[in-house]
Every structure is written in C-alpha cells, then in structure tokens.
Amino acid sequence: MTKHWRKILLIAAITLACFFLGRLDSFCYKQPVGQVTAVKTVASDESTDEHENEDRSYTQKLTVKLLNRSGQTVTIKNDYYASHAESDQYHVFDQILLHKTSSGYQVDMPKRDSLLFALLGFLFSGLYFSMSRRKFSFLGLSIIVNAGLFILTIIWDASARALPVLPVFSVLAVVLSGLALYFVLGHGLQAWITWLATVIATLLALLAMAIVIALTGATGVHFETMSYVTQVPQPVFYAQAVIGVLGAVMDESGDIVAGLFGLQRESADRSFSDYWQAGLSVGREILGTLTNVLFMIFIAETIPMVVLMLRNGNNWSYILDQTMNLGILQTVVSALGIVWAVPVTAFLTATLLTRKETAK
C-alpha cells in the first residue's frame, strides 16, 4: 500500500510541477502575456432574442500585469456573455494572451498551456508508473514520432495550394499505424498481422462507403456543412474518415491477434478452425462495445450544437440533415470497419499461425 501511495504522490507532484512550469513560461512568448491582478465589473445588460433565449452581457475592467514586458501594468476592457458561447470571463490570477493595438492592449485569448502541461504530466507520469520503463519509452517515442509526422503533414497541407489531400493522408494513416505497432509490439509476426488486418479492414470499409456514395450520387450527404474547411470538402471528409476508421479498427485487430497468439502460446497444436472460431468469438465480444463507444463519442461532440440549434427554433429534421449528417455517416463507416476487422483479422491470424506450425 505504501508503494502505491508513493506513486500517487509522485504523479501528483509531477502534475503540479508541470502546471507551474506553464505558469512561468511567459518569457518564451513573443506575443504579450499578462496576468490579471484585479477585476471590476463596470456594466451589465440583459438581452432576449426572438426565440426567447435570455443572456446577460457584462463588461469587465481588468488590471493586467505584463509578464514579458518588464512588469508593466495596463487596464483592459473585456466584454463577455454569461453563456460563455464566444467570450470568456476572467478572474484574478488568470493569465491571458494580449494583442497590441494603436490605443493600447486588447485581450486575445486565455493562456491555457499550464493546464495542458499539467494534463500531459499526469498522463505520462501515470503511464510511466503503470508499465515497464522499456514499454513506456517505446510508447512515448511512438506518440512523439506520430504527432510530429501528423503536424508536419498538416503544415504541408496548409502551405501547399494543390496538395492531393486524400492520397497524402491515406499514406500518412498507413505509416502512423505501422509505426505505432512497431514501437509497441516490435517487428514480429503479431505486429505485421495486426497492421495488415487493420489496413485491409479499413480499405474495405472505405470502399463500401465510396461505392454507396457513387451509386447514390451523394444524395442527402452535405459535405459543404463541414466546419472550417477551406479546400474541396469531399476529399477532406474521406481523409478524416481514413484516420478515424483506422484507429478504431487497429484497436480491435490488436485485441483479436493478441488473443489468438495467447492461444498459440498455450498450445501450438491447434487447427485453422480452432483459431478461426476463437478469433470470431473474441471479435463478437468487443464489436458491440467499440461501436457503442464510437456512437457515444459522436453524440458527445454533437450535443452542444444540437442544443444551440434547438434553442434557435430549428426542428429535428433540419438538425439531422445539416448538423449530424456527416457525423452519422462517419460513425456508420467506422462501425463497418469494425465489423470487417473481425473476419479479416481472424482469417489472417489463423492462416499464418497454422502455416507457421505446419512449416515446423
């Protein structure tokens, strides 16, 4: 028990250290960074729209100490709504990013890196104390390499004018999955089967989606409703679907392959049918759970916009068509990939394991 409490205290200490590191890193910013030292509400007003939604606006007078500008103190006005839909209320000790104007300083956005550092510290310290150092090292390296490749690809896509989005992100997804499995499972047969099954199941799911969209002429699918898209939306949606489906499929394929390799270690004298039936059994056990998780993630992402649109007089038919349309499609495609992953992974693993034993 003492050992467990020691680990918990170390995780808490690392988390706090990362939080204060984020609070003290203002010298790294070129943009002005300030800390609120005093707050005074100087005005408020209540408003009601045509749908009888009530909100209250406030005007704050903030006294802000500039942390990376020789400690200078300035006074800034901040307007916010009680709903906090598009504005923020600030309190004493909050740190904010500022924008320099001809008349002084304006609030740009909250400085959130201290919270981000604390969450990262909590995550990595928790992983470190819950697994061996070797596994933690490879897992951390996998996260860093994959995140780096993803960010570089995003930067490349943002800077290039005519980048083929779908091929680039499809190759990226295949590379990311291969690297993740290599760092976590090594370069053995288990990793290769998991990677191959993941790629095949993802490809089958995306092909099914593409065929249905082509046959129906994308009737009822509104790619133009995607948020913040400055490129042709359909290839961007396909690229998004590739990464989303591949992540869900890799999780399931890894579980099935690990289970069948466990059976092989217990007794190598097994037939193709034994592995095949065991793989299907494992897949059926986790298929429903993974599909429900995907659906709940979609619902959680959609709830704020659905509530907002309902409060502004929109009916369910319009909301389903304009807000939930693409999310439902992507959830269905991901579920289809999860379904395909069961027989594909079971077949590949059973075939290669029985062939391996026959070769001996």
Results as ranks from 00 to 15, higher is better:
residue 235 P to V: 11
residue 233 P to S: 04
residue 331 T to K: 05
residue 71 G to C: 10
residue 346 A to M: 06
residue 184 V to Y: 14
residue 152 L to V: 14
residue 33 V to M: 10
residue 44 S to G: 09
residue 55 D to N: 10
residue 349 T to V: 07
residue 9 L to G: 13
residue 200 I to G: 05
residue 355 R to E: 10
residue 281 S to N: 12
residue 353 L to P: 04
residue 160 A to G: 05
residue 119 L to T: 07
residue 123 L to Q: 13
residue 258 A to D: 10
residue 324 M to S: 10
residue 189 L to N: 13
residue 190 Q to V: 05
residue 237 F to I: 05
residue 92 V to H: 09
residue 281 S to T: 14
residue 42 V to E: 12
residue 249 V to N: 00
residue 262 G to F: 09
residue 116 L to A: 09
residue 71 G to E: 07
residue 251 D to W: 12
residue 199 V to P: 00
residue 323 T to Q: 06
residue 259 G to L: 03
residue 219 T to R: 15
residue 274 D to V: 07
residue 102 S to W: 07
residue 264 Q to A: 13
residue 162 A to E: 08
residue 128 Y to C: 03
residue 210 A to Y: 15
residue 325 N to G: 00
residue 8 I to K: 14
residue 17 A to D: 05
residue 70 S to T: 09
residue 330 Q to W: 02
residue 207 L to T: 08
residue 161 R to Q: 06
residue 55 D to E: 04
residue 149 L to W: 11
residue 69 R to I: 06
residue 218 A to G: 05
residue 150 F to R: 12
residue 21 L to S: 10
residue 352 L to V: 15
residue 259 G to D: 00
residue 103 S to H: 14
residue 198 T to G: 15
residue 327 G to H: 10
residue 223 F to K: 04
residue 277 Q to S: 07
residue 263 L to Y: 02
residue 184 V to G: 08
residue 265 R to D: 15
residue 311 R to S: 11
residue 122 F to W: 14
residue 65 K to N: 13
residue 265 R to Y: 14
residue 105 Y to G: 07
residue 95 Q to N: 02
residue 121 G to K: 03
residue 98 L to T: 00
residue 320 L to G: 11
residue 325 N to I: 01
residue 121 G to S: 07
residue 254 G to H: 01
residue 60 Q to R: 09
residue 207 L to I: 13
residue 202 T to G: 12
residue 317 S to K: 08
residue 82 A to K: 06
residue 147 A to W: 15
residue 88 D to N: 12
residue 313 G to A: 06
residue 173 A to I: 04
residue 227 S to T: 08
residue 332 V to D: 13
residue 152 L to R: 05
residue 148 G to Y: 01
residue 176 L to R: 08
residue 231 Q to E: 14
residue 138 F to L: 13
residue 37 T to E: 08
residue 337 G to I: 03
residue 116 L to M: 15
residue 34 G to P: 00
residue 329 L to E: 11
residue 334 S to M: 03
residue 180 A to C: 09
residue 72 Q to D: 02
residue 249 V to Q: 05
residue 229 V to P: 14
residue 41 T to M: 08
residue 351 T to P: 11
residue 140 G to D: 07
residue 282 V to D: 01
residue 77 K to I: 01
residue 89 Q to I: 04
residue 138 F to W: 15
residue 283 G to T: 01
residue 110 P to L: 00
residue 205 A to T: 01
residue 210 A to F: 15
residue 189 L to F: 06
residue 337 G to W: 02
residue 200 I to A: 06
residue 203 L to T: 09
residue 275 Y to S: 08
residue 169 F to G: 01
residue 320 L to E: 14
residue 106 Q to N: 10
residue 311 R to V: 05
residue 314 N to S: 12
residue 267 S to K: 15
residue 112 R to T: 13
residue 203 L to M: 10
residue 200 I to W: 00
residue 189 L to K: 15
residue 360 K to F: 12
residue 91 H to T: 03
residue 206 L to P: 04
residue 115 L to M: 11
residue 38 A to I: 09
residue 5 W to T: 11
residue 322 Q to T: 11
residue 4 H to Q: 14
residue 40 K to S: 15
residue 74 V to N: 02
residue 251 D to P: 05
residue 36 V to F: 00
residue 236 V to I: 15
residue 81 Y to L: 15
residue 331 T to F: 11
residue 115 L to R: 09
residue 40 K to C: 01
residue 268 A to V: 11
residue 253 S to G: 13
residue 89 Q to C: 10
residue 40 K to M: 14
residue 350 A to I: 00
residue 174 V to D: 05
residue 253 S to W: 00
residue 156 W to L: 07
residue 32 P to Y: 09
residue 215 L to Q: 12
residue 276 W to K: 10
residue 257 V to Q: 02
